[in-house]
Amino acid sequence: MNKDIGFLGLGKMGLPMARHLAANGHSISGFDLVADRNLAAQAAGLRIAESALRLVTECATIVSSLPNDDALEETARVIAASARAGSVYIDTSTVSIEASARVATVLSAAGIAYLRCTVSGNNHMAEAAQLTVMVSGPRETFDEARAIFNSWGATCFYLGDAEQARLMKLVINLMIMLTSGMLAEALTLGRKGGLDWNDMWQVISASAVASPIVKAKAAMLGRRDFSPTFTVQQMRKDVGLILDAGAGLNVPLGLTATAAQWLASAAAQGGAEDDYAYVIKVVEQAAAMDSSAV
């Protein structure tokens, strides 16, 4: 696969992913609609294209990290209209299955190979090249692009030729969100019953329920630090996608629906830009407890 890669979207996830590609010998041109992100990418040694259109026309392989369905579909339209025939488009965004399927139709008509490449992990894991990579799309294109995926993490799964990677990402994020919901109820129960906050975290971290995500949260939440690795608002978007997928497949997602309400309460209380684990405070407040400290 051509080592000249265009990277669209240089935010908290996109920039470190683009940097890892450059470190592994790829020639990277980047672009973001936010000027400050372009400056940060330039300071990190990446070349910045004049525009998204210029990037698309110059690079045979295009990677994107985008915020939502609308951004994905607009990017796909530009690629379909302007990219070279035989180009490859790899999108790493968390978007709906329906939007991704529409993009597949548009790109197929233009002769563009399309890989849905979702990643599991936060921005710190992106910085450390420790993402779990999940890919679906043409198998031959996936095989050719393995060096790209290996730049982002040691674990990569090929899941099928269509939207499987999109659905798998939603499955993972459902479990991540419900882990915070589980912690919210469990910690509130223990705290209101008189257990010490730090004692609970020590026991939980050493117990059978100490999954990697629980251990990753333990250090910060043990200090009641809700600085975001993934915000309430970002998780609300993903939970909305999960609920839509459940509705489309006739799968009842009662626990996820409850989590959506907790996230709405967190946003209403001013926690939209805090970590999604803010739902702990929501449950504490529902239990008539002081959520400001322990």
Rank of each mutant, 00 (worst) to 15 (best):
R102N: 11
E144K: 14
G222K: 12
T75H: 01
A43M: 05
T94G: 06
Q233H: 04
E58N: 09
A272P: 07
D196S: 12
I97R: 12
L39V: 15
W197V: 13
V203P: 00
D244N: 13
S227H: 06
V135M: 12
D36I: 11
T258D: 04
V133Y: 00
A41I: 11
M235H: 08
L10T: 13
D196M: 02
Y158H: 05
S100V: 06
S227I: 02
A277Y: 14
A85I: 03
A109Y: 01
V78K: 02
R102L: 09
L174I: 08
V34G: 00
A277K: 12
S207K: 08
V34F: 04
V283Y: 08
L15F: 02
T188Y: 02
D196H: 09
Y114K: 04
A165M: 05
W152T: 02
D4V: 01
V34N: 08
Q261E: 10
D70L: 13
N250W: 01
R102G: 09
I112C: 04
I48H: 00
V95Y: 00
G86T: 02
L66V: 06
V283D: 04
L189N: 01
T92E: 06
A147I: 02
W197I: 12
K12S: 08
F7P: 11
K169E: 13
I79V: 15
D275C: 12
A218E: 06
N123M: 04
E73P: 02
R102S: 10
V56C: 03
D275I: 14
S291H: 03
E98H: 14
A277P: 13
A208D: 05
I90H: 01
G30F: 10
G270N: 08
L195T: 09
C156G: 00
I79M: 07
S87N: 02
A35G: 03
V283A: 03
G121Q: 07
G160C: 14
D196F: 04
L66F: 03
R166G: 02
A266G: 13
T94N: 09
S100N: 12
A109L: 04
L174Y: 05
L10F: 10
A154G: 08
R146V: 14
G190N: 08
A277F: 14
V63E: 01
L189S: 01
L253R: 03
K215N: 09
Y276N: 05
A206P: 09
G240W: 14
A110W: 02
Q285N: 12
G254R: 10
E140N: 06
S27E: 12
A219L: 11
I97F: 00
A109T: 11
E74L: 07
V135W: 07
V203M: 00
A208S: 14
A272W: 07
L115C: 03
L243P: 15
I213F: 13
G190H: 10
N38T: 00
F230T: 07
S120Y: 01
V95K: 00
V283R: 13
T132G: 15
A76K: 01
Q233N: 13
S51M: 14
E74A: 10
D4A: 05
S100D: 10
L187Y: 09
M177S: 15
Q164S: 11
L8K: 12
P228M: 03
M175I: 12
